[in-house]
Amino acid sequence: MGAGNFATQVDNTFLIVLAISVITLIGITIAMIWFMYRYHHTRHEQAKDIHGHLGLEVAWTVIPTILVLSMFYFGMEGYSEMRTIPEDAFEIQATGRMWSWVFEYENGIQDTALRVPLNRPIHMKLVSNDVIHSLYIPAFRIKKDVVPNVDNRMWFAADEPGYFKDAIACAEYCGDSHWNMYADLDVLPQAEFDAWYKSKGEEFAALAQPAAPGEASKVGLRGPMLFTLKGCNACHSVDGSPLVGPTLKGIFGKEEEVVLADGSSKMITVDEEYLIRSIKEPDAEKVKGFENSIMVAQPLTETELAEIVAYLKTL
């Protein structure tokens, strides 16, 4: 999938240090094996007490010092570039939550795959809705932690077009499906990207508009999309299969035993009020058997909430 703009430098620094390490390690190992053979008591009956050697001590203090200080310098140089975000970089906000990513663009597009223009510096603004995550693109050799309430940023430029599945990972442990918090990366030539950005942007803008007088209500149209974009699907299936949270298949009108915050339980029938409450305050009344699962309320506008509830009723 290409290497991005940092990989060559990171790899070269690594390889230089690797070469120095391998040479030293081989030296140490050969010396130990040779000494154990040459000075084995059958060949060298009388040991010689050598208390030390100032010249050697100085040598193996000074040489490693020079080596590590130069390694430090290279690392610092490379890192300086990583932290200096170009002014003209294209900004995208990445939000991490348990357990998926969503990428938001200035014109309102939201997507679970990261779509970027080729060879253009991309400025990622990192937001967490719950615990600490870490946005990691191994092929590009970059990562940055996504910390709640901390304004972290990172940047890169992709240098090969194509759709790369599972190119983005979460590197900071965040719970049950941490291992599966992969997202795809789609690198498009600038012209193709511009076309996608414009048409998709218009689509999002149109859906966000309230229905015009006389037009059929739009409520329910965006539901399935929001269900994925807001990350609901990470824990709730719509086909009855068990995940971390209860399945939402046939949820509306279902009889459920729920556990209250104080530990007591009661029977309820799932209605609109319960759905809204459970989305806004997940801990208030939890379905029995899932009272130990964590759900964090996702930021939603009133329209988005209505859309999702409308969608849930259809399941």
Partner: peptide, 16 residues
Amino acid sequence: GIMLGILNVDIHLHDT
């Protein structure tokens, strides 16, 4: 450990 101390290399290798 030295490799992990190098700033730009650690950015890649941290948490792997």
